[in-house]
Design a protein around this nucleic acid. Structure first.
Lengths: 241, 241
DNA sequence: TGAATAGTGTCTATGAGACAGTATGTA
DNA sequence: TACATACTGTCTCATAGACACTATTCA
């Protein structure tokens, strides 16, 4: 579709039109720490700064399609590797990009522990960085990506309370112990292993047992589970407070 | 700012630009029923259909500013009357508007019981309609507004569980009974009045007592409360199941 | 006094949390 | 056998829910 054709298909000639970007908060748990996938910017503005991966909505494309496309293009993560994805929020301050007013729709994705990312097609690098390092360090992300990342982390912490989505950080099959380590990484606390085990296995729809067990490791083999079919946990997990 | 100047300020000449609308899900409780404020469309498409109020983002305007402006322009509700407002989500399917691809950022607002709305400046009518009537009836809202409204109602039901925002449906001061009726309207159930009273008054930051009481009504006067300063309820309200 | 609404007491069942104890694997 | 990890039992305390009961107003 040519630009000319696009222009002539406009129904509101006088209405403001804005570029719409989709930015991704891709989270994973690595070495017992919640981490985010970042891209080092190769061009101005914020050249050399870390940023969330993202890109612009194209003609005829839904927001979800843009998110999936950018995930693959920018980070090399296939759709099948993504444990969960949802819309996080939309950020539209007129000055959030120094070039012009750009609307950013942020998506939040949970992926199981990843291999080191390969850089995408462009001349930029991807890295998986612990959240704690970003919040402690003085280094700011590009644009308003600190705010978006913070929103993503808080959404994630809340999601683990009332949904079974912690399993989205694990593979298809996982032990209760692995699930507990996800909670501990995301919430930044320790949980009592026996009580956690009972709570998870007795909450309807949280996990379902498979026929398999772990083997070859030290200690008693652990039962393997799959994510259950519940959309919400009744009652929810609690983090005190 | 002229259109010419706008065009020359673009930094990405080849990038798709889309109209960005803000649509409002304005909810209130009236006659013990959760209701939404709707506008009857005066122009095609969907002429004569009910729709959510909304309008386009203007130059230099944030999403929140657009939401506030549309609320006042389309419904006559002043900012001070709004109990609470938050972003609900963004809807961007390419075919959601038959004219062209339009991104809609939806906002959710809670307002205390309203007077009958006056029509806005345009030739359209506003009405406050019970949610139950919309979900039962066969009549569909314009565009994808049924989906947006559904998302708003579900967000609201969830918000009442873990925040003190039910108070945003009441005035500045309210009785515990009035607060309970908000819960009953939004959740569509009945709650035990004595237990509700104890739960609300004993949860830190949910409500704070004022010096005032009701008077002139039948029965024992009721203490008046204000919304507390808690952002979240620990532990949350429960709706069973 | 009676009706109406506000608010408290109290009993029971359920679940969270602490932590002792048992089960089952590897070295 | 020693050790490591998985899992279960059990006790205590806090809270939700049911519902009897008391308090305070108006007619």
């Amino acid at each position: 579709m040519t630009n000319k054709k696009y222009i002539t298909s406009q129904s509101f000639p006088s209405i403001l039109r804005l570029p719409v970007a989709v930015d991704l908060v891709v989270l994973t748990v690595r070495d017992a720490a919640l981490c985010v996938l970042l891209i080092k910017r190769g061009i101005a503005p914020f050249k050399g700064k870390w940023a969330l991966p993202g890109g612009f909505v194209c003609t005829g494309e839904s927001l979800e399609a843009t998110a999936q496309r950018e995930l693959t293009e920018e980070t090399g993560i296939a759709a099948a590797q993504v444990g969960y994805m949802e819309q996080l929020g939309t950020f539209g301050a007129p000055n959030r990009d120094p070039r012009e007013h750009i609307i950013a729709v942020a998506y939040l994705a949970f992926v199981p522990n990843l291999p080191e990312p390969k850089a995408g097609g462009d001349a930029h690098f991807a890295a998986i960085v612990p959240i704690s390092q970003l919040f402690e360090g003085a280094e700011k992300l590009a644009f308003d990506h600190d705010v978006i990342l913070q929103a993503g982390v808080e959404r994630t912490r809340a999601k683990l309370e009332y949904t079974p989505l912690a399993a989205a950080f694990c593979g298809a099959e996982f032990t209760i112990n692995a699930l507990r380590k996800v909670y501990e990484a995301v919430w930044g606390c320790t949980l009592d292993a026996p009580n956690f085990h009972r709570k998870v296995t007795k909450t309807a729809g949280f996990v379902e047992a498979t026929d398999a067990q772990t083997s070859g490791e030290s200690g008693r083999p652990a039962q393997l589970f799959r994510q259950g079919n519940a959309l919400a946990l009744h009652p929810p997990m609690l983090r005190g407070g």
